[in-house]
Design a protein around this nucleic acid. Structure first.
Length: 264
DNA sequence: ATTGTGGCCTGCCCGC
DNA sequence: TGCGGGCAGGCCACAA
């Protein structure tokens, strides 16, 4: 995959495919130099005691959560916004949008040494990712890559919160992040600040079409930051469609860019 | 329950 | 040239 991606659903899907190479391999060592990175009461010692000797049997993904199934339980792997998954130091994502391409060994926060050889590791400068055994997967909504009209309707129904806040709520829909939502709302011509429950069937249908198209296009282009809006997603940026000065707001706690002219 | 806010973390970039 | 502050966003704790 291409350089410079925030780890939204598309990037985590690339990580899942990378992690799949570990299937059938045995964990022979656990590197956990950063205890802070571990959640759910896990410690470097407990992780090693539990995982060493276990066999990796699968790699799944739900939203932005990577799930590695082993014979000793499920490893939940979160990437925050600067986390990357690397195999022997090389990953599908070369560089993240908010991190440099530099490779400081100190940025390795967690790793699985495998047999046959290979070390699967989290490289995360800002330590916003985390590792948790047996994470609660039910806390996440339906996956964004297989979003259905009904699921979108349920996710938005009756909400007074802004549309964007609902789309970003991982309990409602799992996997959408800030950049993907801005791009899809922009493509759909929908104002992300609209109360979610007030989005009618026509706009909702348009939104679904463009969410799916955005995921498809940006997946092919190589990442969440490859949207048409992205180059103008900055102060003073202009709408690529109609040239209007883009609006910069905070919606759902996130910096949001939208076109005041065609997004209604 | 729903919704909003602030903090976490740290590298990078801009302006002085 | 060095320095300091603002900024990035996924996630979580907490408040109203």
């Amino acid at each position: 995959m291409a350089p410079s991606d925030v780890p939204e659903i598309l990037e985590v899907e690339a990580y899942r495919r990378l992690a799949a190479i570990a299937e059938g391999r045995r964990v022979v060592g656990v590197d956990a130099p950063d205890a802070w990175y571990l959640r759910g009461g896990a410690t470097p010692g407990s992780m090693a005691a539990r995982l060493v000797g276990a066999t990796v049997v699968g790699a799944r993904r739900r939203g932005k959560l990577l799930l590695i199934d082993t014979t000793a339980g499920v490893i939940g792997w979160r990437f925050g916004m600067t986390g990357r998954l690397v195999l022997d130091g090389v990953g599908p994502i070369d560089r993240l949008a908010y991190a440099s391409g530099r490779d400081d060994p100190a940025w390795i926060r967690f790793g699985l040494r495998l047999d046959p050889a290979g070390t699967l590791a989290a490289r995360d400068p800002r330590r916003l990712g985390s590792i948790e055994m047996d994470p609660d997967q039910d806390a996440l909504g339906p996956d964004a890559l297989s979003l259905t009209p009904g699921a979108l309707r349920v996710a938005l129904a009756g909400a007074r919160a802004p549309l964007k806040a609902r789309l970003l709520d991982q309990r409602r829909i799992a996997g959408l992040g800030n950049l993907l939502v801005d791009e899809a709302c922009w493509r759909a011509g929908v104002d992300p600040a609209r109360p979610a429950g007030g989005v009618g069937p026509a706009a909702r249908r348009r939104l679904l079409v463009h969410l799916q198209a955005t995921l498809g296009d940006l997946g092919e282009r190589g990442g969440s930051h490859r949207g048409d809006l992205q180059p103008e997603r900055r102060r003073g940026g202009r709408c690529p469609r109609d040239g209007a000065l883009l609006q910069r707001r905070t919606i759902g706690g996130r910096t949001t860019y939208s076109c005041p002219r065609h997004q209604r």
